[in-house]
Design a binder for these strands. Structure first.
Lengths: 170, 170
DNA sequence: AATAATATGTCAGTGTTGTTGACATTCCAA
DNA sequence: TTGGAATGTCAACAACACTGACATATTATT
């Protein structure tokens, strides 16, 4: 259906993949990512924010009280780049910046009520689209989808992925 | 495995999806896309090109002789943005720009030998990663992966996806 | 106590990639 | 001939990434 057919395995259970099949997968990632970000992008444009703001809000929501260094590692950008985004979010009252109690060098980031609200709005449209795609594809496809995505991550990044969803960070 | 478990379907066969599961899927897309572009990005940085150049090379390779308007629709950017990228690729001798024979307003784009070579290099690292992820995940997962990605595209974009791989354009 | 390392913030400069808006040219078609 | 489509170009601007340098607390180490 998705790729026509032909995901054949050889005798050792290894997938046999033509360049053509791989290229289709590459394009699928490209086009799907466009659809994936289209909804949030529309909302962000109205408030003159960008994807960077969305990502910051998302991961602060995910790990309330996270530190700047934590965010940096997760997002994989420079501190100067993140700082520009955080500054506007703090100035606009969407993010709270509190000095750490144990280590006063650290700044703990949390969403304010308006911040939570915007994050929710962004998350809603993205989850709606995700949900629609998941339902259209079916449970088995969803499992495969996540398995491949996970295999596609940098091993280093995979840590952040697991970490954020699972236990607490230190 | 990928999402722990719990892709339950209700009596009407509809997926039951918690916000948490959907959020994980969103993060998976984010992290996976980083891994997806990491390889090409490294090569591009050396030649002081960007992702936009890669995308242009990819789709010209995919549809040799395509027109600027075709590329615009596929890439979803403005002609000014694409023009800047194409200009450098043409100037650098990676892309050939030929006036159409039937319609002389159109410019048909093809890769030169050096252009093919660079596209090949970019494509190689990306396909290698794709192949590794596919093999790690297995044939069934790959099918599900593509099914979900396709469902995630804008219906409008889905046309380009099918079109480019299948029959001729125009 | 002195020193080193860490965490954060900031300034200045640069580059890629996207956007609008305006305008010119070429050419097809009615 | 006129209208519109296809293409190219100019200027200006914004988002978001980068590097490099520097300042300031705070904590850790010696």
């Amino acid at each position: 259906m998705a790729q026509g057919q032909g995901w054949s395995e050889n005798t050792r259970g290894l997938l046999f993949l033509t360049d053509e099949q791989l290229r289709k997968g590459i394009e699928a990632m490209f086009f799907a990512y466009r659809g994936f970000t289209a909804g949030p992008d529309r909302i962000l444009a109205e408030k003159s924010y960008g994807r960077a703001h969305h990502r910051a809000l998302h991961f602060i929501q995910r790990s309330p009280g996270t530190t700047v260094n934590n965010l940096l590692a997760t997002l994989g950008v420079t501190k100067q780049s993140l700082n520009r985004v955080l500054r506007t979010l703090i100035k606009d009252g969407l993010v709270l910046n509190e000095v750490g109690s144990r280590d006063k060098r650290q700044r703990h980031l949390t969403l304010t009520d308006p911040g939570t609200e915007l994050e929710r709005a962004l998350s809603d449209v993205q989850r709606d689209r995700m949900r629609a795609a998941y339902r259209q594809a079916g449970a088995e496809s969803v499992h495969g989808f996540c398995t491949v995505l996970e295999a596609m991550m940098d091993p280093e990044l995979k840590g952040h992925y697991q970490q954020v969803s699972g236990g607490d960070h230190k």
